[in-house]
Design a protein around this nucleic acid. Structure first.
Lengths: 185, 185
DNA sequence: AGGGCCATGTAAGTCGTTACATGATTGT
DNA sequence: ACAATCATGTAACGACTTACATGGCCCT
C-alpha cells in the first residue's frame, strides 16, 4: 500500500519517469524500502487512474520516448494526509544473514567467523559508498531545508551500517574466544 | 522462499505446532523476519509434502487437539545446505517511519520533533522488553553453545534499538536548532 | 563484439495479508 | 460479561518477483 506514498514522495520533489523513479528508489530509499521497475510502472498507471499524478509523453531522438509523471494537487494532499494522520505500519524486514546467524549453533565457529567477516566487509563497502554519496550531495555544508528529510535518512543509513559492523566485531571476538577454548574444533 | 528455512531452523531446535511456531517467530525472529500464522500453516503443509518434516496428531482434553511437527533428516540436510552453501539474498525492509522521515521537509519542525519523540519512546519500550527477555533467558551467564545463534541475534536486536534511539536524539537536536533559528515557524 | 545505459511494459507465478470460521478454557 | 489463550485452517485478495519482450546508442 505505501509504495504509492513512496512514489508520491519522490514525485513531490521532482517529476520523473518510471525509469528514473526506479533509480531514485535505489539511490535514496533502498535502505528502508525497495521495489522493482515492473511494480513501479504498474503502480504509476494505477495512480494516474486515481488522478494522483499525471503523465506527459516526451519524444526523444537519441533515446526511447519517455513518460514523465508529475504529482497532482490531489496526490500531494493524499501524501500529506498519510504522512501526518495515518497510523504508521510496523516495520517489516527480511534479513537472510540474521536468519543464518540465528542458526550459528549448527556450524563450526571457524565457519561462523568467515561468514561474519564477509558480511562486515560487505557492509563496509556499502558504508563507504554512502559516505561518498553524502559528501557529493552536501559537500560538507549543512543541508538546506528542502533536503532535510533525505539528509536524516542517509545519516540513519550510515549509522545502521556502522552499527552492523561493530556488532560483527563483537560477534567475531566472541567466536574467537570459543575457538581458543577448544582449539581442535 | 526462506520462510521454509526459518521454520526448519526453529524446528531444528525443538518440535512445535504451527501455533507454537507462530509464537516463537514473534519472540525470536520478529526483528529480522515475520510471518502470519496462516502463512506458517500453509508452508508447514507444503514442507510435509516435500518430506522435510513430519507431523503427529496429539489429542488433548482441556485444549484443542494439536499437530506437532518434527524435522526430518532430509529437512536438516536442506537447512544446512542453505545455511552454508546458498548465496545470501540481499536484506529487504519496509519501514514506514523512515519513509515518512524522508519527507520531513514537508511538515513543520515541531511536528517532526513530535513524531521522532514518539518513535524514540516506542523503540525504548521495545528495547526494555528485549532486555528483560535476555535477562530471563541467560540470567547474566554466557550462553551455552546451543544458544549462541539466538544470543547473537538478540544482541543485534538490542543494538539496533539503541542505534535507532540515538539517531532520534541526533535528529531531534537538529530540528530544535532549526526551531530556535526561526521561532515563529 | 559485448556490455551497460536508456526506456517501457506484460504475464505468470509466488509470497504475504486480511477476513472468515470454530469453539472450549482460563483469568479479570 | 469480556478478553485472552489455545489451536487449526480456507478463501480471497493484494503485493512482490522473475521471466520474457524490444531496440537503439555509447563506450571499450
Amino acid at each position: 500500500m505505501s509504495l504509492k506514498y513512496a512514489l508520491l514522495g519522490l514525485l513531490s520533489k521532482e517529476p520523473s519517469t518510471g525509469y528514473h523513479l526506479t533509480q531514485r528508489f535505489r539511490e535514496t530509499l533502498i535502505h528502508f524500502w525497495n521495489a522493482h521497475h515492473t511494480q513501479i510502472y504498474r503502480e504509476l498507471a494505477k495512480m494516474e487512474a486515481e488522478e494522483l499524478v499525471h503523465s506527459e509523453l516526451v519524444l526523444q531522438d537519441d533515446h526511447p520516448d519517455k513518460k514523465v509523471y508529475t504529482i497532482e494537487e490531489k496526490g500531494l494532499k493524499a501524501l500529506l494526509y498519510w504522512l501526518t494522520e495515518e497510523p504508521p505500519d510496523i516495520p517489516k524486514m527480511k534479513d537472510e544473514m540474521l536468519l543464518r546467524v540465528s542458526l550459528f549453533n549448527l556450524i563450526p565457529p571457524k565457519r561462523a567467523i568467515e561468514m561474519l567477516e564477509a558480511s562486515k566487509l560487505h557492509h563496509g563497502i556499502v558504508l563507504s559508498r554512502m559516505e561518498e554519496w553524502v559528501q557529493f550531495r552536501y559537500e560538507g555544508n549543512s543541508p538546506d531545508p528542502s533536503q532535510i528529510g533525505e539528509y536524516l535518512t542517509s545519516e540513519y543509513g550510515m549509522r545502521y551500517m556502522k552499527n552492523w559492523i561493530s556488532w560483527c566485531d563483537w560477534a567475531i571476538e566472541l567466536f574467537q574466544k570459543m575457538v581458543q577454548g577448544e582449539p581442535n574444533e
